[in-house]
Design a binder for these strands. Structure first.
Lengths: 204, 204
DNA sequence: CTTGCATTATACCAACCAGTCAACTAAGTT
DNA sequence: AACTTAGTTGACTGGTTGGTATAATGCAAG
């Protein structure tokens, strides 16, 4: 039941890549099928709609990214180092995409969410789910920073949300400006937002 | 030369509204023409492409919004009050759109930019131009806050960019979550990011 | 009245869109 | 060998897409 067939896997992979690089609206089912080398009939055997595929592709992407995220945000790592690793991973992946596609792609969940939240409720809910998952990592991080006395915070959940909103905002601006620069200064802004007391190590 | 005909005006107005409510990809030229009560021939007489219309519609939207922005960010107003007015204007307009359309619409420039920056260079450049215009207001604000000794900042331009990225991030998250709440707490996050010393007045 | 030009209206296009379908294959299972 | 199940194929549908060609209008100057 859970073993996904080769063509289903290929469709999910291709769809994720194409939607991330372009947008949901500018990629057609035919485009995806052609690039994936899968027949359109097979597409609609595997997924009941284009929108369904997008949701499934995002879930798959998350499942593949999760081990790395678990590692980056591991409680075994001091919170400030966690933050550093998180920022570095974003910079690395964004730069890699930039080299591959010749342009900044930003956060896929947010791009799709921003495009279709008002149009497709299932996609909005998925994007919302994705952001909430990421938020959990940031919440633990904020709480651990507070526990170590590195920051002062009344409402850790709210601060985490602020940090995460900031991160996604920076990624969006980087996409619009088509420039890595803001992403490279991501950590600086986060440190300021958190109000980390000892700035010697990480903030430039 | 500059006087725009009635149908051109109607097209720009309708396009802005429809693209903001839905998305560029999910609104067709026919949709816009029908709703604007303008014939398709007139559309392609006035604009040479759908993408051109979008760019023009955004420019028009900016021109109409500018007087309000100039007023909000007037140097005559103390910087902290400017910030408060800015946040209030965002909350008000977002709530108004929420009541009209039954959903959060976020920032139109950013939504379109996020959707099409990798697809349409003219649209990306326009979105980039829009954000840079807004950034100028925030830059002056940050500098004036520093001049009054309310914040400490080494690079005002960078802090302004951070604040603006945060604002757009919050608007995007509000759209994805379809919830005004984060927008209502916008000022709280900005104050923390700025590191305003005297929090008594504005931050709850 | 007529010429010329700025609009606007109508009809049309080929390409493309998401989605459907009956026929087919291949690999078990009995 | 007969039957079931899971997956594949490619042609097909009906509607929509952005964009065009051209005719009809209005209207102001000569």
């Amino acid at each position: 039941m859970k073993q996904e067939s080769e063509s289903k896997r290929k469709l999910l992979e291709t769809a994720m890549e194409m939607i991330w690089e372009s947008s949901y609206g500018s990629v057609s089912v035919d485009d995806i099928c052609t690039k994936a080398g899968v027949n359109k009939g097979s597409f609609y055997y595997a997924f009941k709609s284009k929108s369904d595929l997008a949701v499934a592709a995002f879930e798959r992407h998350w499942e593949h990214k999760r081990p790395l995220m678990d590692k980056i945000f591991s409680s075994q790592i001091p919170p400030l180092e966690r933050l550093d690793n998180y920022c570095q991973s974003i910079i690395t992946s964004q730069k890699e995409k930039y080299q591959t596609f010749g342009k900044m792609l930003g956060c896929p969940y947010c791009s799709l969410g921003s495009e279709l939240s008002t149009q497709d409720e299932k996609i909005r809910l998925k994007a919302d789910e994705m952001t909430k998952r990421m938020l959990k990592y940031v919440e633990s991080l904020v709480r651990d920073l507070a526990a170590e006395g590195l920051i002062e915070v009344k409402d850790p959940a709210e601060l985490a949300q602020e940090v995460f909103s900031y991160v996604t905002g920076v990624l969006m601006q980087a996409k619009i400006e088509n420039n890595v620069h803001h992403v490279e200064r991501l950590q600086h802004g986060i440190m300021r937002l958190l109000g980390v007391k000892n700035l010697t190590a990480a903030a430039s």
